[in-house]
Amino acid sequence: MNGLVEFVFEDIAASNVAGMIAAFVPDVMSVSEVTRDGEPLPINWPFDSDALFSVLSSNEDAAVVINVRSLAIGDKSVRNATIRILRYGGVNDVSVLATSTDCKACGINTVDELFRWAKTISERYCVSNFYGGLDPAFDERTQLYSKSGVGPIVAL
């Protein structure tokens, strides 16, 4: 398989999103671009927990996109990934987009490894629901995993 994979974490408290982003992005040097609703933000913005909390606890809908040079998935580092933070109707969702080629290049070889990582992140940051798969990950036929376990696609 080769293509875009999406890892989704749904319904996260605003107070937990900053920690989650810090778990994904090792440092500000890993960030290449940040936008909110299409407008550029400073590269260090994702590391300002007060600014992030302000956006994610407001009554306004918002979309923050963070393009990174390096993203941590467990102890592995995936190159050139994107993090999307969506605030809508009082709910915060975070999704990570990467290519299966970049995942395999850093040594992620099994769906079980991705499931364990997503489950750990979900437990640590009190995520209501999580799943991952070929983009779009909500399509159950092309999921690598969901909250209940490994899905129908069993290899990257």
Rank of each mutant, 00 (worst) to 15 (best):
R124A: 10
D48K: 04
V150H: 01
I153P: 04
V150R: 08
S30E: 01
I108F: 02
V94E: 05
M1F: 15
N129H: 10
A13S: 12
L52W: 01
I108S: 02
R69F: 10
W45Q: 10
V28L: 07
E6A: 13
R69E: 07
D139E: 12
I153S: 08
E39P: 03
D102C: 05
C126S: 07
R84V: 15
E140V: 09
N67Q: 06
S70Q: 12
A23F: 12
T99L: 08
F24L: 13
S58C: 06
C106I: 03
V34C: 09
F130L: 01
G132K: 07
I83D: 09
N129M: 11
Y131Q: 08
S54E: 08
A14C: 13
A118P: 01
V127G: 01
Y88A: 13
D11H: 11
K147V: 03
S77W: 03
G151A: 01
K119D: 12
V5P: 03
V78W: 00
T142F: 11
N109Q: 11
G107N: 06
A98F: 07
A118H: 05
P40R: 11
I21A: 09
A137I: 05
N44G: 15
W45C: 00
M29Q: 09
D93L: 06
N44L: 13
W45I: 05
L114S: 14
R79K: 14
L4K: 14
F7M: 15
S30D: 14
Y145E: 08
G38E: 05
D37Y: 14
F7D: 15
D48L: 00
S58Q: 07
P26Y: 00
S57C: 03
F130H: 03
V28I: 10
D102T: 10
P40T: 10
G19M: 05
V127F: 03
L41R: 15
S100Q: 09
N59Q: 08
F138E: 08
T35W: 00
A81W: 14
D135W: 15
L156T: 00
L86S: 06
Y125E: 01
K147N: 14
V5Y: 14
A23R: 13
Q143M: 10
K76G: 14
I85G: 04
F9G: 13
L156Q: 01
S95F: 04
R141W: 08
T82H: 01
N59A: 11
P46V: 05
I121R: 08
N2R: 14
N92I: 03
L156M: 06
V17S: 09
D93C: 10
E123S: 12
V55D: 00
S32D: 04
G151W: 00
E140A: 12
V64H: 00
D37W: 11
E60D: 09
C126L: 04
S57M: 12
A22Y: 14
W117C: 01
V111I: 09
T142Y: 13
P46A: 03
G107R: 04
F138Y: 06
C103A: 14
S58N: 12
L144N: 09
C103M: 12
N109R: 04
P136S: 06
V96C: 08
T99E: 10
V91Q: 11
K119A: 13
C106H: 00
A81Q: 14
D112Q: 15
I83M: 07
V8N: 15
N109C: 02
G151Y: 00
V55R: 04
L114P: 05
V55C: 02
V96N: 01
S77G: 03
